[in-house]
Design a protein around this nucleic acid. Structure first.
Lengths: 225, 225
DNA sequence: CTAAAAATACGCCATATTCCGTATTGATTA
DNA sequence: TAATCAATACGGAATATGGCGTATTTTTAG
């Protein structure tokens, strides 16, 4: 049985072009096309319910994202939506996903890719173009940036890096921005000794400057400042 | 030229198995394997720099996510990381991405898929298994973009110290632990110029080292780290 | 008690940083 | 238009830092 799909785009030429390419594939059937969100909601009622909608994001009247939201609210999991767009703007992607889109492809994608994606959303997957996937990861990465390490409370300890007590102590002082001399004075030893300790610290942490050591220590919450 | 890659997994059998499958492909070369995060950091220094690391997520000592974080902080875009795991737990995925992973595959993926994914990350893409992609979209859907509550205007601003735009910019980079050279490269100017700017910064802030400048900037919340 | 690990200390050398100059160019503004 | 500021760039000199060695003493652990 053919999978019923619909195409929504305000550009009739693009609909034609996509439709022509997809019509070569046996497993799908384009049950209708619509030129914007309002039109889409109308036609869903009048026609056979599509299982997948390919939707443009830039449309007059009711734009793609609003349309996704409406369809998602009304038909939930009965209809999967794949966004088809020429842009890969982060906020658009984000909003489309929040509105309920299941996939996000570029318009210049090959017809075979689109067909695969249709099958994928039907199987519960979330097909997306390479660029989009990368954008999404960036988005996720920028969300609550510093929580990562905090959520795994101090799993990594100085001794996991084989740091000794003295070395850990000196790392603290490094992190306060103290010079060799200052640390030496504070600990009542020679600055040559401090230098050697710091050398050993660098080797164990695999860094090669005070700054890097400092940053690593901060990352793992070994220091408070 | 073959693409150098590394495999990290605490299970030698799995490393062997993956290695054997991948060795059939001409375009890649496994330059080393490691059994945990610490081991990985060691071997990165000792061997040829891999362009892609296939990393297990469940490891003793330093787990996969922490290892990703370290590699990402140190080597940034020089090394891409693909997580390889048997689990598809949301939090693991989330943390791995936040830590800087570029791809996320199931361990039972076909060797050809892994090879494709390696090529994809090298091209700037973000390959992920179907299940993972869906999980990520769910995650993003449940994440309401948090507003920056930190809007309370800082009492003391850089311009209160008469810092110019450029100087403020350079102060940011100082605070990341960058050297004169690195800052110069980033801003496309001579390191002598940076040297002079920093001198002026010191005079205006009344400090006399990067550390002090850094600490002052942190005190006034001019930087986030 | 004895071997191993940790802490101490020195030297050499290359590079980075800091503090002092000077100087040119473009933009702003009084 | 003239004066000032911002950004650019260079050089010298003193000090700090980082990477390599070696070596002694003290502490810890088996």
């Amino acid at each position: 049985m053919k999978t019923p799909i619909a195409i929504v785009d305000d550009n009739p030429l693009l609909i034609q072009s996509i439709g022509r390419n997809l019509s070569l594939y046996e497993e799908i059937e384009i049950v209708f096309t619509a030129k914007n969100g309002i039109d889409l909601l109308d036609k869903i009622k009048q026609n056979q319910l599509p299982k997948v909608i390919l939707m443009d994001i830039e449309m007059p009247q009711m734009n793609g994202i609003q349309a996704v939201y409406e369809v998602y609210q009304r038909y939930g999991h009965q209809i999967k939506i794949i966004m088809l767009t020429v842009f890969d703007q982060e906020d658009k992607i984000f909003h489309a996903i929040q509105a309920g889109a299941s996939g996000y492809l570029m318009k210049d994608e090959k017809a075979s890719t689109i067909i695969n994606s249709i099958n994928e959303v039907l199987a519960g997957g979330s097909p997306m173009s390479s660029i989009v996937a990368t954008k999404i990861l960036e988005l996720l990465r920028s969300t609550q940036k510093l929580q990562v390490i905090d959520n795994q409370p101090n799993e990594v300890q100085p001794k996991d890096f084989e740091l000794t007590k003295r070395e850990t102590e000196i790392l603290q002082l490094i992190s306060r921005g103290m010079t060799y001399k200052q640390i030496a004075e504070q600990l009542f030893v020679s600055d040559k000794t401090i230098k050697k300790h710091i050398e050993n610290i660098y080797n164990k942490l695999h860094v090669n400057s005070k700054y890097e050591a400092m940053q690593l220590a901060r990352r793992y919450n070994w220091i408070k400042i």
